[in-house]
Each structure stands twice: as structure tokens, then as C-alpha cells.
Design a protein around this nucleic acid. Structure first.
Lengths: 77, 77
DNA sequence: TTACTAAGATACTCTTAGCCA
DNA sequence: TGGCTAAGAGTATCTTAGTAA
């Protein structure tokens, strides 16, 4: 990532003139300390959850899956 | 999305010859019935959580955030 | 017939240079 | 001085055509 052209690129992304490459997004995610899927969350809450889940351990994620599947059954019933 | 060239494109993606555009990924996500960030999850559990969260209501997500933030405090203490 | 690959046409982004506030 | 924009260079994907199983 060339620092000298970072400013125009960020402007082009923000103004919607260009779309950043997926590889570029990975670099940005590392810089910002967020997971890559953070950029693809449709709302604030989902984005925050993505960050929280990224910081969890594998076993914590598995446990959360079970919890959510149970509560889903509740709301479907 | 041109159906006539879908097959070569999918092969090129799978073989790692080309990387699909973000817009293409959106179309694929809609076709597959998964959230867009599904493609950017680093492990199976995170991907599954992304699907579960995508099906939740806004208020359910907010509630989940509070739950996770509490349990995070526990493990940090 | 289906899965896959190669190569050119096309369209995209990245960079440089320069303008406006 | 820092943020923003325009246009060309370079590089990526998409499409067509064709091969192998």
C-alpha cells in the first residue's frame, strides 16, 4: 500500500467513485483493528457483533451458536 | 450477471485465478441466501453466527450485544 | 454433456498532477 | 496546507472459444 496515494484513494472510496479491492479492505481492516466482515455489515448492531465475535475464542463461538439456535426456536414456535 | 459466462467465472474463482468483485459477491449472497459478510468469515463458527445474526431483529441484536459485553467483562476480569 | 482452461476485449482501480477552500 | 478531483497508465476481470473427461 503506497502511502503517497492513500489520500486520493480514500477520497475516491468515500465519494463512491471507486470501490476498494478486497485485498485493500484486508489491509484497512488490519489497520483499523476490525474484522474484515465489519465492512459488509448492513447495520451498526451487526457490525458491533462482528467485532465482539472476532475477539471470542472458538469454543465461545460454538457456545453462542447453541444459545442463538435455542432462542430462534422460541421465536419460531 | 450473465448466465452464459457464469460457469467459467465460478471455476476461475474456485481455482483462485480471479477474485470476484464485491458487487458480484452481493449477487451470489442473494442467490445463496446468506449475508454478504458470510464470505469474509475466517472460520465456520463465525460464518454460522453471521447467518444467525442476519436473521435476527434489530432489538434482538442489541440485546445480544449487551449479553456479550457482559461475558467479555467476566473473562477479562 | 459437463467441467475446465486460454487469451483477447473490456472495465476497473491506482497513480500522478493539479485545483479549491 | 490539507482535502479533493481529473485523466491516463496499468492491471484486473469477463467473455468467447475451445479442450478434456
Amino acid at each position: 500500500m503506497d502511502e503517497s496515494s492513500a489520500s486520493p484513494r480514500m477520497n475516491q472510496y468515500e465519494k463512491g467513485k471507486h470501490t476498494p479491492d478486497i485485498n485493500t479492505l484486508k489491509l484497512l481492516a488490519n489497520e483499523l483493528g476490525v474484522p474484515l466482515n465489519y465492512f459488509f455489515c448492513e447495520d451498526e448492531a451487526t457490525a458491533k457483533l462482528a467485532c465482539l465475535i472476532a475477539d471470542m475464542s472458538e469454543s465461545e463461538r460454538e457456545a453462542l451458536i447453541l444459545t442463538l439456535e435455542d432462542s430462534t426456536l422460541d421465536s419460531e414456535a
